[in-house]
């Protein structure tokens, strides 16, 4: 009972604090308000789980998750290496490069572009992660099959965005290149590739999340005894939910850092784009 009451008190207090903070739209408030909100959720979670004596096999309190996290760093690191560094990152690099090169290869052919763009858009909307059982069958249980799933998942979004980006220049800019008598290679390097970069990075950012999803879900279809998806499914089986949550914390950190890293490169490369200037 005390837990529930104090949870409500914390909620009320935090809301009052946030309202005071948000009354003025400062950079400080913008940074602090979401943090206060996040911490409030965690504290309430802790208090409610303890106060209502929720079983640890239903919802472990954050403190238990933190303990599990701190106590299993080697396991978490091994799983992270297997799933993120090998599966997700490996597949991401291969898939994105392949998509980029394909886009360049079909660039000169209007016919291929017309044909591939609708097909690519169609495939990009499909539940590609369903190819995981097939690819696991072909490439075995280890990270190679996970990388293969990631390759298939990231390929089409990056391809479609790059192709769209390469045709994003307007007629005037192309005419200008024409008046200089520029060769196709020159207008690709000087005009169309730089102009395509915002689109390319859009695809690359979408692909970061897809890569992690692909690598984790593919492990549900078979994996060696290491990996984030493997650990999640076995820990769920043994009702070790704190471990599952610890893995989800790792996935969340990895996902947002990965995305952040690509976004950072983007802001360096496309510093000139209106979206980056505001």
């Amino acid at each position: 009972m005390i837990g529930v009451v104090s949870a409500l008190a914390v909620w009320a207090g935090a809301m009052w604090l946030n309202m005071r903070l948000a009354a003025r739209d400062t950079a400080f408030a913008r940074a602090v308000v979401p943090v206060v909100f996040g911490v409030t959720i965690l504290v309430m979670w802790e208090l409610l789980v303890r106060g209502l004596q929720v079983s640890a096999v239903i919802l472990p309190p954050p403190s238990a998750i933190a303990q599990t996290f701190a106590g299993n760093l080697p396991t978490l690191w091994a799983d992270f290496q297997q799933t993120f560094l090998k599966g997700a990152l490996g597949g991401y690099v291969i898939g994105c490069s392949a998509a980029f090169l394909t886009a360049l290869a079909i660039d000169r052919s209007d016919f291929l572009r017309r044909g591939l763009l609708p097909v690519g858009n169609f495939v990009a909307a499909l539940p590609i992660v369903g190819t995981a059982p097939i690819l696991v069958m072909w490439f075995g249980f280890d990270w190679q099959s996970k990388a293969a799933v990631v390759v298939v998942m990231v390929y089409f979004p990056v391809l479609v965005n790059t192709v769209a980006g390469l045709s994003a220049t307007d007629a005037m800019q192309r005419d200008l290149m024409h008046t200089y008598g520029a060769s196709p290679a020159q207008s690709l390097i000087k005009l169309r590739l730089p102009a395509a970069m915002p689109f390319v990075f859009n695809g690359l950012k979408i692909a970061t999340t897809l890569a992690l999803i692909g690598a984790i879900v593919a492990e549900f279809f078979g994996s060696p005894i290491v990996g984030m998806g493997f650990r999640i499914s076995t820990s769920v089986g043994s009702l070790d939910l704190a471990m599952v949550w610890a893995q989800i914390v790792v996935a969340a950190l990895a996902g947002s850092l990965f995305y952040g890293a690509i976004a950072l490169i983007e802001s360096r490369v496309t510093f000139w784009h209106p979206a980056q200037r505001s």
């Binding site: 005037m172 800019q173 005419d175 200008l176 005009l191 730089p194 102009a195 970069m197 496309t270 510093f271 000139w272 784009h273």
Partner: peptide
């Protein structure tokens, strides 16, 4: 010289 400056922003 075109109607718009058409300078490359990058």
């Amino acid at each position: 010289v075109f109607q718009a400056a058409g300078l490359y922003p990058w």
